[in-house]
């Protein structure tokens, strides 16, 4: 095994650990501005990890959409609402902790049957994938297999995705797009 394979594996685990630290900080902090910024950092760490794991297209999208647009949307929401969180009741936190530890334990038990990381003989790397890798250049003329599958073989999926975004945009516009009369009874409409 060559040196750069080992170093990329170390980088992979190190990035995952950083993501873990960021996530724990998100769970503990109550300043929502810091929480939103950390969630942007979390996304960016994820994007870096995707580059290490060879998913360059995904990394690009995550950096632009996950770390960029999501963070901007959340900051906008903070500006329209509040940036301070109240303390969490301990009973509720304890129940949530117990539940998530239990679910996590079950999921980790389930991974014991999975093929090891990076194994080329894993079932996920067979069936339809060799066909895409062998034939897509001839059939679509696009050297990037991800683009070939996304835009050509699964073009209708991508069209459906566009409908989802359109629907979400309509929903957002219906909810907060139009100017509203301020209520006269005092509550609400504080800064909007």
């Amino acid at each position: 095994m060559s040196v750069d394979v080992i170093s990329s594996d170390l980088l992979n685990v190190a990035l995952l650990v950083f993501m873990g630290i960021t996530a724990v900080a998100v769970a503990r902090l109550r300043n929502l501005f810091a929480v939103v910024m950390l969630s942007g950092i979390y996304s960016l760490l994820g994007a870096t990890l995707y580059v290490v794991l060879d998913a360059v297209d995904v990394a690009f999208t995550e950096a632009a959409v996950g770390a960029g647009i999501s963070t901007v949307l959340m900051l906008g929401t903070l500006a329209l609402t509040t940036s301070r969180e109240k303390a969490t009741p301990t009973a509720r936190a304890r129940t949530a902790m117990a539940l998530s530890v239990a679910i996590g334990a079950v999921l980790i038990y389930a991974t014991l049957d999975m093929p090891l990381f990076g194994d080329p003989s894993a079932p996920i790397n067979h069936h339809v994938v060799p066909r895409y890798l062998d034939e897509s250049l001839e059939e679509t003329g696009v050297p990037n297999v991800v683009t070939a599958v996304l835009a050509s073989y699964r073009g209708y999926d991508t069209l459906g995705e566009t409908f989802v975004i359109f629907t979400a945009a309509c929903g957002v516009l219906v909810l907060i797009g139009r100017p509203r009369r301020r209520k006269t009874d005092g509550t609400g409409a504080s800064k909007a």
Binding site: N12, V13, L16, V17, M19, G20, A23, V24, V26, A27, L32, V35, V36, M74, T77, L78, T81, E85, K86, T88, P89, R92, A93, T95, A96, M97, L99, S100, V101, I103, G104, L107, I108, T111, L112, M114, L116, F117
Partner: peptide, 26 residues
């Protein structure tokens, strides 16, 4: 399998935040 395990730990931190916190942005 460590990659999957850390991913699952991250997943559970996310689930914990969703369940434990009252704040909607959080």
């Amino acid at each position: 399998l460590a990659n999957y395990w850390i991913a699952i730990v991250l997943m559970m931190i996310g689930l914990y935040v969703v369940m434990a916190h009252e704040n909607l942005i959080k």
